[in-house]
Every structure is written in C-alpha cells, then in structure tokens.
C-alpha cells in the first residue's frame, strides 16, 4: 500500500525553553530536536501495515528548512522508503497554509492512506491533518488508537471518555494517530546506514498566503518559591493572616 506520513520536527519537550530575541519564537540554541512523538507513532503504523502486507511504500513528508532533513532521515532509518522535504524558511503558525502546501504535494501522489500525528508536540493545533483531508476531499478520522486495513476499507478505533468507538471508512483516507497505537521502533545502525542511501526529494513548499502569525510569545509565570513562616501552633495566626490577605483563599 502506498502510504504517506506527514511529520514534524519539534524540540525535546524536557528542555528549558527561552524566548528568542525577536519575542515571537523560542531560542533554539542548545535545544535537541526530534520527530514529534505522535508523528513517530504514525510512521510506525505505516511501517507495520506494509510489513504485514509484505509490500508497499512509505513516504515521509516534512515541511521546513533544511534541518528537517535530519528528521526525515530518522523516519527513513526506522524503515520508511522515501522522503520529501517541502522547503520553507520556517514552519508557519497558520495550519491552513501548511495544509495547502501538504495537499499540493499529496494530491497526485496516488496515496491510499495519509497519516498524521494527532497533533504536533510543540504547536499542538492538530489542524493540518483535518484540513488536508478537506482540501483533498477525503474522509478523515482523527486520533486513531488502532487501525486495521482490509482491502479498500479500514477500521479505526477511537478512545472516548469512558468508552471507545470503532469506525469504518473507505480508502483513500486521512487518519491522525493517537498515542498507544504502536511503539515506534528504535532505528538499528543497519537502518541508519540504509537511510543515508534512500531518496530524499526537496521541493519548494507552496504555502500561499500565511494569515495567522505569532504576535508574541511568553513563558508561563514562574511560581513563587515556598516560604516557611514558622513551626507549631505559634505560626498559625500568621498563616491565617497570609491566607486572608496575600493568598486570598479564606
């Protein structure tokens, strides 16, 4: 089966973030980047589908500057067959612009299945997948926690609050992937070596007009440190006073 997986390069979420001097993005110095977690699940799902079928082709598509080639290689080292970089100076905040660029690439690709992570770990908009489906006129299923392919049909499971639903839909389709569906494999050195020789095509991203922009970015307010006001019953009056006047919870 011909499968496309759209992936994104994101910073490691364990990092200590700083706002860049321009005030609208994070300072990338010292940050480690990797494929976004949900996107890695999506790659794994694609690989497993094709492994099970014994044939097929998995293409990974990533939008961004040349550094994203590293992310594409990571997916190739896991076992994807080819990569496409939709080259852009940066990844815009406008999901529709991203979706349009992706749809332009996907439109004539002959893909039977297009996979996304349910949302990126950094921006978390979750918009690109659904918008691509709309632009291509394909059925769309979000946050799948299980995906079974049988012929030209697919069945997906979605986790709900206290329940789960199974949905059937025809292919081609767009599916966004939730966590827990499959553990992304760790690339072997053999895979890493093989990935260096796999095709990676670079094309300009047809973003069109970008209408949503980041105006300002700020870090969450730091929590004030705890304070010890005393010990034992003697400290109680002061505690009550502070809870009334400072914390205003009483």
């Amino acid at each position: 089966m011909k499968i496309a997986v759209c992936i994104k390069r994101v910073p490691d979420m364990e990092s200590r973030f700083k706002i860049a001097a321009n005030g609208v993005s994070i300072d990338e110095t010292g940050l480690k980047f990797d494929i976004s977690d949900f996107d890695a699940y999506a790659v794994e799902v694609a690989l497993q589908i094709n492994e099970k079928a014994g044939s097929g082709e998995t293409t990974v598509i990533c939008l961004g500057p040349d550094v994203v080639q590293e992310t594409i290689r990571k997916a190739l080292s896991m076992g994807a067959d080819k990569g496409v970089q939709l080259k852009a100076d940066s990844v815009p905040a406008d999901s529709l612009a991203i979706a349009k660029a992706l749809a332009a690439e996907l439109k004539d690709g002959g893909y039977e299945l297009i996979l996304f992570g349910k949302h990126s770990l950094d921006a978390m908009t979750g918009g690109a997948g659904t918008m691509v489906a709309e632009l291509l006129g394909l059925p769309c299923l979000t946050a799948a926690s299980k995906l079974e392919i049988s012929g030209s049909k697919a069945v997906a499971r979605r986790e709900l609050e206290g329940a789960a639903e199974m949905l059937e839909f025809p292919l081609p389709a767009v599916v966004t992937i939730d966590e827990g569906i499959a553990r992304p494999r760790y690339p072997s050195l053999k895979g890493i070596m093989a990935a260096k020789k796999k095709p990676l095509e670079v094309k300009g991203a047809q973003l069109g007009e970008v209408r949503v922009i980041v105006e300002k970015m700020e870090l969450p307010a730091e929590r004030p440190p705890g304070r010890i006001i005393g010990t034992g019953p003697d400290a109680v009056p002061e505690l009550v006073r502070l809870l009334q006047t400072e914390a205003k919870v009483l």
Partner: peptide, 30 residues
Amino acid sequence: VLSESRFPEELQPAFESMERNGSPWAFSPA
C-alpha cells in the same frame, strides 16, 4: 541492537534519553 534493533523494551527510553538529554535518565541537562 545495531543490526536488528532487538532489545528489552525498557532500554529504548534509556537510549533515547542518552541521545536527547545526554543521560540515560530523562532529566533536564540544565
């Protein structure tokens, strides 16, 4: 590990953390 990527699943977070955080545990390098 290198040819087949076959190892106890507990090792994957350790590998990934060494790669990302420079430590086998997921602590912030900072």
